Amino acid sequence: MSEQPTRPADRAAEAVRGWRLRRGVRLAQDAVRGMPTLLHPEGVVLLNETAAAVLALCDGRRDAAGIAAELRSTYRGVVAEEVDALLADLARLGLVGAGPDQADHGGGG
Score class of each variant (00 low, 15 high):
residue 17 R to T: 09
residue 66 G to C: 10
residue 34 G to I: 13
residue 43 G to P: 07
residue 47 L to D: 15
residue 61 R to F: 01
residue 1 M to T: 15
residue 22 R to Q: 11
residue 93 L to K: 14
residue 32 V to I: 08
residue 82 E to R: 15
residue 77 G to H: 09
residue 65 A to H: 08
residue 48 N to R: 13
residue 29 Q to W: 15
residue 8 P to W: 03
residue 48 N to W: 05
residue 6 T to K: 12
residue 96 V to D: 12
residue 85 A to P: 05
residue 64 A to R: 03
residue 13 A to E: 12
residue 32 V to S: 06
residue 25 V to M: 05
residue 77 G to V: 13
residue 4 Q to I: 05
residue 59 D to P: 09
residue 89 D to M: 09
residue 100 P to N: 01
residue 44 V to R: 11
residue 17 R to N: 11
residue 73 S to Q: 12
residue 2 S to L: 11
residue 89 D to Y: 03
residue 68 A to M: 07
residue 54 V to R: 08
residue 103 A to H: 10
residue 22 R to G: 12
residue 49 E to K: 08
residue 18 G to C: 14
residue 32 V to R: 15
residue 25 V to S: 08
residue 79 V to H: 10
residue 47 L to M: 09
residue 26 R to E: 01
residue 41 P to A: 09
residue 83 V to D: 02
residue 82 E to A: 14
residue 37 T to K: 09
residue 30 D to H: 07
residue 101 D to H: 15
residue 88 A to T: 13
residue 29 Q to G: 08
residue 58 C to D: 01
residue 94 G to Y: 02
residue 55 L to N: 01
residue 1 M to I: 10
residue 9 A to T: 14
residue 60 G to W: 13
residue 96 V to H: 01
residue 64 A to E: 06
residue 57 L to Y: 03
residue 50 T to R: 15
residue 104 D to Q: 10
residue 9 A to Y: 06
residue 84 D to F: 06
residue 31 A to P: 02
residue 75 Y to C: 09
residue 60 G to P: 07
residue 4 Q to F: 07
residue 2 S to F: 12
residue 56 A to F: 07
residue 4 Q to V: 08
residue 107 G to Q: 12
residue 84 D to E: 15
residue 47 L to C: 11
residue 40 H to Q: 11
residue 28 A to Y: 09
residue 76 R to A: 15
residue 26 R to Y: 00
residue 20 R to V: 03
residue 81 E to W: 01
residue 100 P to I: 03
residue 27 L to Q: 00
residue 47 L to A: 05
residue 95 L to H: 04
residue 66 G to W: 00
residue 95 L to N: 11
residue 109 G to T: 04
residue 98 A to F: 06
residue 74 T to F: 12
